[in-house]
Design a protein around this nucleic acid. Structure first.
Lengths: 197, 197
DNA sequence: CGTGGCATGTAAGCGGTTACATGATTGA
DNA sequence: TCAATCATGTAACCGCTTACATGCCACG
């Protein structure tokens, strides 16, 4: 249910077209809450129906058009209500740890390949998040810049601090996953003997 | 797509009825891959249709009946093929870190409540996983006991080691989430002043 | 005149959630 | 005879994925 909150988080900074929103999304909040393009347009439509946003239809050239979305008071309230509400947690469904629990039935080389893939995956995530962190520190992420432009002086530090806090947490998690998988590789060496590679 | 692999992991140890499977599930592999009861029966039916398991229908008393599922060679192969295949990763969708990134818009007390709830959630998960770890060390988890009974002497150590590895990883992740949320509570104190509580 | 980016979607399907639904057996 | 537990499901819905579908505009 958080796609709409992610969208509201961006729109709250200022109106955006569906297309621009989708672009900004993948470069900012999309690093925390992924959404496919094909999901964003229908969700915006539903949000408009529910009165969380209004649609301003603009013409582009002769026949082209774009829809610019504005947050309403209800939308603003939906966002802050969500922030102030009790969090909900997904039930665990962790394919990597499920697999890890049964590695004794895998081919040792396949087990190593799995852990190397795990490391590669989380190193990629880590570099994304470290990149975001440096954009936060340098204040050169486009959405953050827009956000700070409409934020009072005394709130800027808080805004930046919470973003840093969020991405720091994600980066730590990635480091933990990498360290775990590296422990796993050493464990395979101990149990199955050193590998071919 | 991993529900069936979780089910195969249990059935591979020996045949079980849908009901017993569901009970065992929630006490073992369900700690890593959650599944609702209502999901397990249809999935077993599909797996039978696809030839991964066979169904042995047993009568119970006059009219009662139970279906006992046995893994077929195809089922065995589906499981090991999965273990040997490249892992797939879900796109990130992390409500807690999404929320954390926008805490400047939340009421400070609600922000604290959120982080306390985060800590409580992960402490609960942690105690589950630490419990599982002690069952693994003591070798008194029912499924593990059954598993080891059909495992050769020299494979027991490996079997236990990989389970320990998997649950250690989950426990570390939980500790990371707790440490992160505690940092968050201190950050709120710094930014918003010490709280009411 | 073509290409790349702007712009907006639909449709089918899948895995999971929630709620509902039913009935038999066992033991106190 | 009553409750607990054994035992097996169905139906509606929801969010997400994948693939498909269309057409305009600006620029070289």
């Amino acid at each position: 249910m958080s796609l709409r909150h992610a969208l509201l988080a961006l729109l709250r900074v200022g109106p955006l077209s569906g297309y621009d929103l989708q672009k900004q999304f993948s470069q900012s909040v999309g690093h925390v809450w992924h959404a496919a393009d094909s999901q964003i347009y229908p969700e915006l439509r539903k949000m408009a129906l529910e009165g969380l946003v209004t649609v301003e239809e603009q013409t582009r050239g002769e026949r082209g058009m774009r829809k610019v979305y504005h947050v309403t008071e209800d939308g603003e309230r939906a966002f802050t209500d969500w922030l102030d509400s009790a969090p909900e947690y997904q039930r665990i469904r962790d394919a990597a740890h499920l697999r890890a629990a049964y590695l004794e039935s895998a081919d040792p080389e396949a087990a190593r390949a799995f852990l190397r893939a795990h490391i590669a995956h989380w190193e990629h995530e880590l570099s994304c998040w470290e990149g975001e962190l440096s954009h936060i520190e340098a204040i050169d992420n486009p959405m953050l810049v827009r956000r700070l432009a409409v934020t009072s002086e005394q709130d800027r530090e808080r805004t930046i601090a919470y973003k840093r806090f969020a991405y720091d947490g994600l980066a730590d998690r990635a480091r933990g996953e990498i360290a775990w998988a590296e422990r796993g590789l050493r464990l395979i060496d101990e149990l199955e003997g050193p590998g071919a590679r």
